[in-house]
Structure formats: C-alpha cells, structure tokens
Nucleic acid binder design. Structure first.
Length: 883
RNA sequence: GCAGGAGUUCCCGAGCGGUCUAAGGGGCUGGGUUUAGGACCCAGUGGCUUAGUGCCUUCGCAGGUUCGAAUCCUGCCUCCUGCACCA
C-alpha cells in the first residue's frame, strides 16, 4: 500500500502551488467564514483541531456546492499570557521551560531567546501554528493572515473604539476584581493557590446609628431581614477602628477597614475603638428606627466582612443560640448588661415557612437539640437548611410592610432596590482566596476603568432581536445564548498591562483581549492589500476605515484605486456567513461579536450564522488537568495523519457536547482510512464488471438516501451525524454489497464509490484527492461538485427485496443454530413472484452456508419437499427445508 | 448562590411518545479464513423458550400523565460547565 502520509504532504504542496484556496471576488455566490483566531503562546492543541476542522469542513463543503469560498485565519496576541510566559523564562522557571521542551522540542537556546520578549514568543508560535494548519490540510487563504499586535491592526482598533465612543457605548467607571496586595494586580483563576472558583460577591451593608451619629455597618447577604433585627453584635475582644467614609463615621473591625480601603479610596482610618465602650449602647434600625442594643458576640469573626453583625434570631440559628447563651453568661456585668436586658429582647416573626412555627430558628435548634455555639457542625447544617428552605419557599409576613406576600428570593431584590440610598455595599470573595505568591487576596474596586456598555438597554435589545433572526447551530445553544445575553453587562475593556493596542484617548490603558477581537474578520479583507501596495500603518486613519467600510467621507492617505478595490472587496465578502467557535466563547466573544457589528455596521453587514461546539477532553480528562502529556494538534497529525486527526476530532460526539480525544479512536480511524483507501483503490483498478442484480438497485437507493442525509446534516454542521452516515453507513452498505456479489462490483457500484469519495473529501481531503486521481478524474476533488441527490433513484422496492434476502439468510441461520448440525442441502420454497429475486441469489446463499441451496417456487410441481415446508411459505418468508 | 446542561444495557455512545432488547463501536464468546500469530469475515452477547417462535424484565431514584414512556410532567439524588479582565 502507498504511504498515506506522503500522500498528505504531496497534496498540500499541490494545493499551495495551484493557489486554489486564494479567493477573489467573482460572479459566484460568496461564502465567507474564518477560523477563530488562536492565541499563539504555544502550538495549537487538540481542542483547536475540533473547532477548526468543523470550520474547514463547512468551507470545503460550500466550495464543492459551488460557492466562492473565503476561509482564512489570523492570530491573537493581545493580553498577558505571552508576557507572563516571557517573564517566567527570564526567571528560569523550571516548569515553564520543561513544558516548552517537552511539548515543542525547543532547544535551550531558542527558549532563552524568549526571555522578556513576549512579541518574539507570539511571532514564533504564529509560524508554528501556521505550519500546523498547513499540515492539517486546511483550505485557507494565507495572504490574509495577521496578528493582533500588527500596527496596521492597531489602527483598525483605534477606529473601532473611537467609533464606539462617539456612539456613546464607551464610558468610565469602577469595577471590583479579586486582587493580590503583594503582586499588586488582579488575580485570575490560574494564579490562585486557594479559592480557584471564588467569585466576587456583593454584600449589603445596613447602617445602624449610635446616638452620637456614628454608624455600625452590619454586613448581610439577606437584607430583607432588616424588619426582624433584634440587636447588633460586636466582638468584645477584637480590634475595631473609627473610620471616615465621606461625611460619615463608621466603626468597623481593623481588618475590615483595610479591606474597605481598597473599595473606597476616600476611606480614612481615624482612631482605634474599644468595642467594650460601644457594647451596651443602643443603635437605631435604619428602616424601622427601632432602638436596639449592641451586644457582645465573641463568636463572630471580626475578619469577615465589617466585623459588625446584625442579629435576627427568629430565622438565624446562630443568633438565637448566641442570645440564649448570653442570658446565662457570667460576663454580662463587664458590659454593664444584665440577663434581664437580654430576656427583654422580643423575637419578631418575619417569614412564613411551611412546617415551622413563627420562629424557624428556634424550632430547628430544638429539633436538632442544639444548645451551644460549640455545636458548630450542627449549627451550620441548621443554618443551611433554614436558609435554603426560606430562599425557595419562604413568604414574607405582614411585618415587612410593602414586601408582605413576596417570596424571600423576590424580597431580597426588592428590598435592595427600594432602599438603594440607605444601603451600602461591600465586596468579598465568595471563599478564601490566596495568590500563588502566598498572600491572601481581597476585592479591590478598580477606579477610572473604561467600559463598553454591553448593559445598555437599547443596544442589548437590538442584539436580542437580531439573535432571533440569526441561525444558531446546534439550535441547542440558542437558549444558553439568550440566558447569557440576559446576564451580560458593562465590560471593563482596558488593562494596565499586556500586549495590545493602547486606548486611543487614554494611552496608559491597553485594550484587552475580548474587546479587540469583536469585528476582526473585517481585517482579513483589508490585510490582503497592505503588503502588495506597501501601505503604512499611518495611512490607515479614521477617514480610511470610514470610507472603505462605511462608504462615508473621503480618504486622502491611500491611493483612490487601492481604496476602491478594498471597498469593492469588502462589499463583496461581508458579512461573515458563518462563525464557528468552541463554547468557551459563548458567554463573551460571540455576544460581543454581535454587539459590535450591530453598533458599527448597517444591518446588511451583520453576521448570519453562529455555530458552537463543546470542548475536547484527553482520554477522559480535561485538557487543562491532564498535566504534561497534553497532545498537540501537530503530534496527533504526525502520529495518525491529518485525515485521521481531522475526522476523529469531529466525529466522536455531537457538537453540543464535550468530546474526548482517545488514541484508541484514532487508531481505529487509521484502520478505517486504510480500509477505505484499499476498497476504493481496488474499485478504481477494476476493469471487469459484474452483471447487475437487485443489490445494485439497492446500493444506489441507499447511497442516494445517504447523500441526502449527509448534505442536510452538513448544512447544519451536524458533523457527527453527517460523518456517521458517510463513513460508517456507506461502508456497511458497501460491505453487504460486496458480500452479496462475491467481492465483485458493477459499473453502478463504481459510480457510487466515486460519489462516496466526494463526501469523504471534506473530512479526509488528502486521501480523497489521491483516490480522485486513481479513479481517473480530472482536477482537484476539492473543487469538484458535490454529489446531487436524485430522489427518483430511491427505490423502496429494491430496498425491501434486499431486506427479504437478509431476513431469509437470518432465518436459515437461526434454524441451523437450533438444529446444530452442518447442512448438506438447503431448500427454499418461495412465492412465485419472488422466484427471480431468490433465483439470482442462489449462488450467494450457497456460498454463505457452504451447502447446496435449491430455490423452488411453491407452485413448482417438480420440487423436492419431503416435509411439506413449502406450505409455510409467505411473501418475504420462504419455507425452509434443511438436510 | 445564580445560570445552562447531563445521568441509557460490561464500557464508550445513539435514541427523546408507539416500529425499543433499545443504532454504532469496543470488549467478551463461538465459527470461518490463515502454516501460526495478526488482520479480515460471520454469528452470539438480560432471562426463559423455539426449525425461522413466544413471553418476562430493563434506560439515576420515586411518583404522575397516556390505550402506550428511555422519550412528556413533578419531586429527589448525583455529576459537569460558566459567573468576567481570563484567552
């Protein structure tokens, strides 16, 4: 057999030489798509294989359908990753260097050259990535490749941002992030030691006032309990401070003051406060104005939130038990309090909860026999139980005034809204977070941030409306999309570090990754003109983009002729017909992509179709978790060949699900490919064809249905279904056909095989080109026309007849199994109109059973039928006699 | 916590109101082919039964709707993903 890997290389060269993938406008209908631009901080991984192959399959399919297809890609270097990598190399980080060596076989010298040179890193891997895509057989127009740190591209981003700003979609604000004080920077999941999954949670602060006007800000996740608060707790032995916040004075724990300082730059620490002096005083409830005591709470954690806790003992088991304990406390005198003071505290029933009385906290503590704060585990469980029940099923009682009758979950939001002016907020990580450097992290409110206002109601509703008009494949994702759209809000679009384009009007900021990659597909069209016309970045000013992209104004920096060519190309190719990406971009990039098109371009240029696919796991493990042995796209190609790698990466599961890369699958696919190649190659060489019988009509009918299904599925990019039919279904039909015909083929079968190779060509383009040539066809199969479905050739009768043969084969086998002996003679008695069908299959049956098979019509007077089995014959079910 | 999903036979993985013991692989068992191994081909793979048949049981758990449920509804359990400065 030929070396199928050499074949791949040969056809890649042929394609390049003949430039068949370089697209120029012509009279055909166009189809414009692109691979999602990859981040080149390493070579492409196996996840890219899936997403990219899907795009390539659709591009190749459309090309064969007769469209003028433009498919291309570029690289995205914006952001911090390469900067961090280059820094780590400079610091001689062993893991980083080892990974680079293991995965990409780089030499020490090469690696050393990357130290503190992020640009060098990304440009190096851009070349690697390009190579890999070529090895994968991607049908791309490489004249349009760019990287997002090219100065020309930056000019495009300048224009985009100025345009957005003019339209009022960019504004300044503040933004909470999880922050490491030691590294002095926001800290992402991968930089964390503990609390990888922590998120920023917003905590409400109710401001309880002492008589002297000083505020005790109590933190809570349940602001609706304000109506039933009975007292406030301070830790008697913790360090508290008096701080100034704007015009107000607050008392908070020392730890809290330090955290709050990060969220409120105007906060000033004035003085240390002894909590003992505050305990025993009275504060007023900010909503009800009720007076209540400040009590000692040795159980509270002064480091959490503000160190001030409001107590709601009817619903919070902790608070209830704390008060119970306090009644018996011997320490009360220390705070000038008496047990009577505590006993006077009256619980207020706030939330109606089925199965519980007025005070659920009291009930559950009784039930669970909790009597002391030292029963920590039980208390936690009780708290969780009540909280969960109340959140989902609790109903607010009369005491809550206008919120009465609301569910607790609704009331929380309603209270926040109603008392917007009285409530304050602070932010905390949802769990403890520590940085890899060891320091504990907290939330910092970044000031003077620039935002793109994706929360803008009008803009959002435009997106929502247009989303309904767009095609989303698989339809499965549309719901997820709409849900994500509901949640998307203003997005901080600049950072202080990393590669990228400086914000045009505030150059100390750099536009971040997801914000400079929203409409980059436009740049594929422009980029092609830059080199040949020696256009400099400075020439690409706003006038240029306004003229070529929006058809507005005048541009004097670029020659008129070039300008109009670009404009012509843009009008021909745009909009993007198909955007395919992995699901990680669903919540962000894909939405921003639609948002920005809608903001900047007229409707005729808005994208048409979005498709999404799941991730790829490696041997059942997440790629990020399978340490060290991460398979790259390139090694997969080198091991199994491009055709196999491509096919395996899209065939294993349906697009909406995560798939799994298993070497075993790839090995099976290698077998399949070889079998396919040998089969078609043998057909190609066949000169002697057999006479046709029912199985030819059957095969033709089956192949027409298969082509039909494959075509329909590719239209929706249901790659798995399409592949399953055109690989496995077709193969199993051919196998039956060959079995039926003693491994011989007819002319019809060879023609069907030719169509089959065309179907396979989108998955396995290399081997298909080779077989195309073997079959004596001209030109590239990549440019051949997609097989047409002739529904007239779908022959239900022939299929049914073939089914009868199969069934009869089964019946005989079944009997043979039961009688358990080797047959010498087999007699089949068929109804008269089936005689021809069975008679032409007589040899086939004989061969299958290694016995002489005799076919008789039931009305044949000369038949041999000692046991009168012919009387059992029905249509499709011959009588059977075996000797 | 909020949001979006998933749980199918030994394993992977289809099916998403009747044609479902439930596609397709893999594994295992038997047979063929082969000098042998491999590869390849055929058959079997819940239980009982049978000259090509018939019955019972099964799709996370528990209920419900229906003439009929793996498929629809309700509740529960378990698992996965995202929640933003990270590409």
């Amino acid at each position: 057999m030929k070396d199928l890997k050499k074949i791949e290389n040969k056809w890649q060269k042929e394609w390049k030489k003949s430039k068949i993938f370089e697209a120029e406008p012509d009279k055909r209908k166009k189809f414009f798509t692109s691979l999602v631009i990859a981040y080149p901080s390493g070579d492409l991984h196996i996840g890219h294989a899936r997403t990219f192959t899907r795009s390539d399959i659709i591009a190749r399919f459309k090309r064969m359908q007769g469209y003028n297809v433009l498919c291309t890609t570029g690289f995205h270097a914006t952001g911090n990753r390469a900067v961090v990598l280059a820094k780590r190399i400079a610091n001689k980080d062993k893991n980083t260097i080892k990974t680079l060596k293991d995965l990409y076989s780089l030499s020490d010298k090469e690696i050393k050259g990357f130290a503190n040179k992020p640009e060098k890193v990304v440009r190096f891997f851009m070349e690697k990535g390009t190579e890999t895509l070529n090895l994968g057989g991607f049908a791309l127009d490489w004249r349009r490749r760019f990287i997002s740190i090219d100065p020309h591209f930056s000019k495009f981003i300048d224009w985009q941002f100025r345009t957005l700003k003019k339209k009022g979609y960019v504004s300044k604000g503040s933004h909470p992030v999880i922050f490491c004080p030691k590294c002095d920077s926001p800290i992402t999941q991968s930089d964390r030691d503990e609390g990888e999954n922590a998120i920023v949670s917003e905590i409400s602060l109710w401001k309880y006032k002492l008589d002297n006007g000083v505020i005790l800000p109590a933190a809570t996740l349940r602001p609706e309990t304000i109506f039933a608060i009975t007292n406030v707790f301070l830790h008697p032995d913790a360090k508290y401070v008096l701080v100034k916040v704007g015009k107000e004075s607050w008392i908070v724990s020392d730890a809290a003051a330090k955290k709050l300082k990060q969220q409120r730059p105007n906060l000033e620490i004035l003085d240390e406060i002894d909590p003992i002096n505050v305990i025993g005083q009275k504060v007023s409830n900010p909503v009800t104005n009720d007076k209540m005591l400040v009590l000692p709470g040795p159980f509270i954690n002064p480091d959490a939130t503000t160190g001030v806790v409001a107590s709601e003992p009817s619903d919070a088991p902790d608070d209830h038990i704390a008060l119970e304990e306090l009644k018996k406390s011997s320490q009360l005198a220390r705070y000038n309090l008496t047990a009577k003071d505590i006993e006077k505290i009256k619980y207020k029933s706030l939330i109606k909860l089925e199965g519980y009385g007025d005070f659920p906290a009291v009930d559950i503590c009784k039930q669970m026999k909790i009597t002391s704060l030292s029963d920590e585990d039980k208390l936690l469980e009780a708290k969780k139980t009540i909280y969960k029940l109340q959140f989902h099923k609790g109903v607010m009682k009369k005491i809550s005034g206008k919120f009465a009758g609301m569910s607790v979950s609704d009331a929380i939001e309603a209270v926040k809204k109603e008392y917007k002016n009285k409530l304050d907020v602070m932010y905390e990580p949802s769990e403890r977070v520590t940085c890899k450097c060891g320091a504990e992290c907290y939330i910092k409110l970044l000031q003077d941030q620039w935002f793109i206002n994706y929360g803008n109601k009008k803009w959002k509703s435009q997106v929502k409306k247009y989303l309904k008009e767009m095609n989303v494949y698989p339809e499965f994702w549309r719901q997820a999309f709409e849900a994500a759209l509901d949640w998307v809000s203003d997005k901080a679009c600049v950072r202080k570090s990393g590669l990228g384009t400086p914000l045009p009007w505030d150059k100390e900021w750099v536009i971040e990754t997801l914000s400079d990659s929203t409409i980059y597909m436009v740049f594929f069209i422009i980029d092609k003109f830059i080199k040949p016309n020696k256009i400099k970045a400075e020439q690409l000013n706003d006038d240029f983009f306004n003229y070529v992209l929006l058809g507005r104004g005048n541009c004097k920096t670029v020659p008129k002729k070039v300008l109009n060519n670009i404009k012509k190309d843009f009008n021909y190719w745009y909009p993007l017909d198909w955007r395919n990406s992995a699901k990680d971009l669903l919540n962000n990039h894909l939405l921003y992509f639609i948002y920005n098109h809608i903001a900047i371009f007229p409707k005729k240029n808005w994208p048409k179709t979005i498709s999404v696919n799941g991730y790829v796991n490696l041997e059942g493990e997440k790629m990020s978790k399978s340490k060290g042995k991460a398979t790259t796209f390139r090694t997969a190609i080198q091991t199994y060949g491009a055709d196999v790698t491509r096919t395996v990466s899209v065939i294993s599961t349906s697009p909406e699900q995560d798939s799994d890369w298993r070497d075993e699958d790839a090995e099976n696919m290698v077998k399949w490919r070889n079998k396919f190649y040998e089969l078609i190659n043998r057909l190609a060489k066949t000169k002697k064809f057999v006479k046709e019988n029912n199985s030819d009509k059957w095969l033709l009918s089956r192949s027409m249905s298969t082509i039909d299904i494959v075509t329909q599925n590719l239209e929706k990019l249901e790659s798995r279904d399409a592949a399953q039919y055109c690989l496995y279904q077709m193969m199993s039909d051919f196998r039956w056909y060959l079995r039926r015909n003693n491994n011989q083929v007819s002319k019809t079968a060879k023609k069907i095989a030719t169509d089959w190779v065309k179907l396979i060509a989108v998955y396995m383009p290399h081997i298909s080109e080779e077989l195309w040539k073997d079959l004596g066809q001209k030109g590239f199969i990549s440019n051949a026309s997609w097989p047409k479905v002739d529904k007239k050739k779908i022959d239900k009768k022939a299929e049914e007849s073939e089914l009868r043969i199969q069934k009869s084969l089964d019946d005989v086998q079944h009997i043979l199994k039961i009688i358990g002996k080797k047959p010498k003679e087999i007699y089949l008695y068929v109804v008269p109109n089936e005689l021809k069908l069975y008679k032409e299959s007589e040899d086939f049956f004989s061969k299958e059973f290694s016995a002489r098979v005799h076919i008789y019509a039931v009305n044949d007077k000369n038949k041999y039928d000692p046991e009168k089995k012919s009387s059992k014959a029905k249509p499709g079910k011959p009588g059977i006699y075996i000797e």
